[in-house]
């Protein structure tokens, strides 16, 4: 099942085209990292999915319900779809005069969850996000990190099939970030789909299966992280670091080789030449002791794409 389908979505704010024919598909059960530089259209995309901003053109389908077409939202389908979605916004405060228990209770009411179930869910979730100890403390007294945890908690109250997280780890300390990542992984294990926007690429790389990169309102790349790296290596070339048991003469080698120290070399080639490299070194009467293919980080790929 496709959880999110966006086709040719256009959204302009006065003279700025925030979304310029955006098309993307998020299949069921994946953690989808939605990447892009500031102002690329990430938040506008998420707000459009939830009917919080009005795109001018295109089509949106959420969990099989067509919610937007030809400049109009279908309010009935949107409400139906939202019942199965959890959303954690970027830069939001919760109602400061409420406690976490009261917050989850009032949000649970929006989904018409029965009282006993609301209480049970609230307890489970507050324990999951480590807020159970402060369940009766006013949100107004919470630190930034605690507020972020509560924002995640409110997104989970309806046990959503699709979790939409907008820059969820902003303002969290390293422990908080690790816990957040664990929660995301658990959601995936439970068969949930997570749509996760971020500009912190290390986080995306660790938790996401699939990545979409949006630049100037258009999706310029969408694939699994593995495929993206493979494709990137094909285009940018392979960098292989080897260590041999004795010096090697590289004068007849067809690749660019840079010595890095005693019997250590960096070999750069447009293709994967690991086998050929073994043969070449052997032909020189030497042996490869260690070989390391330097993988590009998502950050390197992203920077290259954005440029």
């Amino acid at each position: 099942m496709i959880m999110i389908t966006v086709e040719n979505l256009v959204k302009a704010y006065k003279d700025v085209r925030a979304l310029d024919g955006l098309t993307l598909r998020v299949p069921h059960g994946v953690v989808y990292g939605f990447l892009g530089p500031n102002g690329a259209g990430k938040s506008t995309t998420i707000l459009s999915l939830l009917g919080l901003v009005f795109p001018q053109e295109g089509r949106i389908e959420l969990l099989g319900e067509e919610v937007f077409r030809d400049g109009k939202f279908n309010e009935g389908n949107l409400v139906k779809a939202k019942a199965r979605i959890g959303y954690m916004p970027e830069h939001a405060t919760l109602w400061e005069f409420l406690t976490p228990m009261q917050t989850l209770d009032i949000i649970g009411r929006a989904f018409r969850i029965p009282k006993a179930e609301r209480e049970k869910r609230a307890e489970e979730i507050l324990k999951l996000v480590n807020l159970w100890e402060v369940r009766n403390k006013k949100v107004g007294k919470f630190s930034k990190g605690m507020r972020q945890r509560l924002l995640l908690a409110q997104a989970l109250i309806n046990d959503p099939e699709l979790l939409i997280l907008d820059e969820p780890m902003t303002g969290l300390d390293p422990t908080g970030i690790a816990e957040f990542k664990e929660i995301i992984r658990e959601q995936r294990k439970a068969g949930k789909t997570v749509f996760f926007s971020s500009h912190i690429l290390a986080h995306v790389e660790e938790v996401c299966d699939t990545v979409g990169v949006i630049v100037k309102g258009r999706l310029i790349l969408e694939d699994s992280i593995e495929n993206i790296k493979r494709e990137f290596l094909k285009k940018a070339g392979y960098t292989i670091i080897i260590e041999t048991n004795r010096p090697v003469d590289w004068s007849s080698a067809p690749w660019s080789v840079t010595p890095l120290g005693e019997n250590r070399y960096r070999v750069v080639s447009p293709e994967d030449i690991r086998e050929e490299l073994h043969d070449y070194v052997a032909s020189q009467g030497a042996k490869i002791l260690t070989m390391q293919v330097k993988e590009p980080t998502l950050e390197e790929i992203f920077l290259k794409l954005v440029k």
Binding site: L47, L50, G51, L52, E75, V79, K80, K82, A83, I85, Y87, P89, H91, A92, T93, L94, W95, I107, A110, F111, R112, L151, Q154, N158
Partner: peptide, 15 residues
């Protein structure tokens, strides 16, 4: 400004 309306309207309610 506070963002509370985005939380509220992301739930199963109409505008």
């Amino acid at each position: 400004e506070d963002g509370t309306i985005r939380i509220a309207l992301s739930k199963s309610v109409t505008r």
